[in-house]
Nucleic acid binder design. Structure first.
Lengths: 347, 347
DNA sequence: CATTAGCACTCTAAAACATGGAGTGCTAAT
DNA sequence: ATTAGCACTCCATGTTTTAGAGTGCTAATG
């Protein structure tokens, strides 16, 4: 057995051990493996291999005469295999339920996201999380203004995705309704159909160019608009229900629960993680200390991106113990992301 | 000792016992009371009185040779005294901090409420909750419309309190921008300065009267408006951070934490409780099973209303174990509500 | 006669101890 | 190379012991 590679049999035994551990949630002895799998090998042989796997860092032992427990390195291998080679087929009744739950929601993206997080929680018994598309990626459909008082105007942005953002703007000068209408028309003409990111670069550079020339009113319009889109990049992290979660032995200690809540409460932590992966497609898994955040070091997170009809991407995921049931969770997350993408693609 | 009344000394001993229990969080023996308070009485006497108090239902005993524990009836007496007669002076540095925290927030009521819930959590180490004024009580300042597409219009309501609500309305007929402007003007003229409740009764009855007569456009306006204000009565219940909470021995068991979270997650439960008291002023305390909701039966909630410059009332409160530190929490909640009212009253 | 010292009694939480079994690592046999 | 056999380790569980906190009662006391 070389250091760099595991032979086929070792892999199988490692797999069997990890799977058993996830199922039984307690250290796995050699005999358990022989009983649950028919490798045609005796416990003694399994034991020898297991000793090697410990040597190589894939397994560990709570104490001398105990069974074996997967290490993060072990989970990594297990999960990678799960992601690449093998997918558990999803239960059709479950698929139906998922479909129903998400389709029963009115076409409001935030409600949809919220329901998704709840659905993920409900079906996984871990903690589901979901965030809507990042503001910078949403496509602007319409801009409007509602007079608030003489010096203030509420700017309303509507995105193609159906996201509505409000921002109260204090004006330097008094504007008539006529002016406001003109500004509205101008901005809608220039801006509609672009993403906020595009607008920021394209239009605002244009602004500095046009600064000297042109209509005084347009200058004003651009100034107002610039203020309107500089909201703080708020993250709406929705987390599903958590009270169903800590039945699981993994979450059974107070300190664990505490950590979990710290992690969940500092939503920007989660947003940061979910954000980091927003670039790549497909399901990704971060195991234990791979999450650089301290509060998350005992947990794993399974995430995937989804897309809407335009180009915006959001992220959904499940937070669970490092020994979570990846075999079921990964397809669940994958399929949920796909379903969400589907729904958001429909006219 | 009559059944109906406690004599002065019994009250003192009961008070001392409850206070000690809250401080020490474990059953209180007669000797503890004599040591912590100088009643000039021996343990034996205290014991006799305590036996009476058990008889009368103010105290209980986990087992024969244990100290005494307050019952809900006991807490009730204790809390009522606390509410009526006696207020712990608040630490001035704390007052300063509270003031700073709430004043550092921009004048956005929802942000303010959120911060309040967090502040309550932080300073009490229990769970702070806060809800903004009920929709029906807010005073309308302005209404506006932003065209979404040919058949849809986004209705924007701005309240005096600074609350903004959006509702997407599907139109039966196509409206020109001119029509929309007219409708906007008409509605603003009719409606501004009224509470939603007033509007609902007054204007909508007027609507049915004017139905037959009058401008066709006004009829349309009223129809649109009616749809606009019939949003679901959503409760934004903000809960502060919880991860700091279960250091406390009271929250030390898994099942307790579980209950707590069930209670918190079903926010409408809390909203219901907070709602019920929205009528009366001042601080109120609900102890254990006084909260009719099952999930709350092991907890107490200390609540108070706050008012904004107009007539709207919101509620804030703290959820903690029945044996929570009422002596500190009650003034905290009272003062926070006052501060909030103050801030919301400023121009 | 209310109060209290004194004391036997109760119950528990914590410590100390005992036991069974699950699981290992090694060795010798296949 | 595999595995049966076995001595050994360690923990989880259950049992026993112990110390002490607290009570309720009784008899003594001002």
């Amino acid at each position: 057995m070389t250091m760099s590679e595991l032979d086929e049999r070792s892999k199988k035994i490692l797999w069997a051990t990890i799977k058993s551990y996830i199922d039984l949630k307690s250290p796995i002895g050699s005999e358990v493996v022989t009983k649950r799998f028919s490798f045609g090998l005796s416990p003694a042989t399994i034991r020898n291999t297991m000793a090697d796997l410990i040597e190589l860092g894939y397994l560990s032992q709570p104490h001398t005469s105990a069974g074996r427990v997967p290490t993060e390195k072990g989970y990594r291998l297990y999960v990678d295999a799960l992601l690449k080679e093998y997918t558990l087929p999803l239960d059709p009744t479950f698929l139906q339920q998922l479909f129903n739950r998400l389709h029963s929601i009115e076409k409001n993206i935030n409600r949809l996201i919220e329901e998704t997080s709840k659905t993920l929680s409900a079906f996984s018994h871990y903690v589901g999380v979901a965030i809507p598309p990042q503001p910078k990626e949403i496509t602007l459909k319409r801009i409007g203004f509602v007079k608030h008082s003489d010096s203030k105007v509420l700017c309303v942005l509507i995105s193609e995705e159906g996201i509505v953002k409000n921002k109260l703007i204090t004006l330097a000068e008094v504007l008539t309704q006529r002016d406001l209408n003109k500004i509205t028309n101008y901005l809608n003409h220039e801006i509609t159909g672009l993403t906020l990111n595009e607008i920021k670069t394209k239009i605002l550079s244009q602004m500095s160019r046009e600064k000297t020339i042109c209509d005084e009113l347009i200058a004003k319009a651009l100034r107002i608009f610039k203020e309107a889109i500089t909201w703080l990049p708020e993250y709406n992290v929705y987390t599903g229900e958590i009270s169903g979660t800590y039945n699981l032995p993994d979450f059974a200690t107070i300190s664990q629960i505490k950590k979990l809540f710290k992690a969940i409460e500092y939503k920007h932590f989660i947003a940061k993680i979910l954000d980091k992966i927003a670039e790549s497609d497909g399901v990704q898994v971060f195991i234990g200390s791979e999450n650089t955040i301290y509060e998350m070091e005992d947990f794993s997170i399974v995430v995937s991106t989804y897309k809407d009809r335009y180009i915006a991407r959001g992220t959904i995921g499940i937070i669970g113990p490092t020994g979570m049931d990846y075999e079921h969770v990964i397809p669940l997350v994958r399929h949920t992301a796909e379903t969400l993408t589907e729904i958001l693609s429909e006219g």
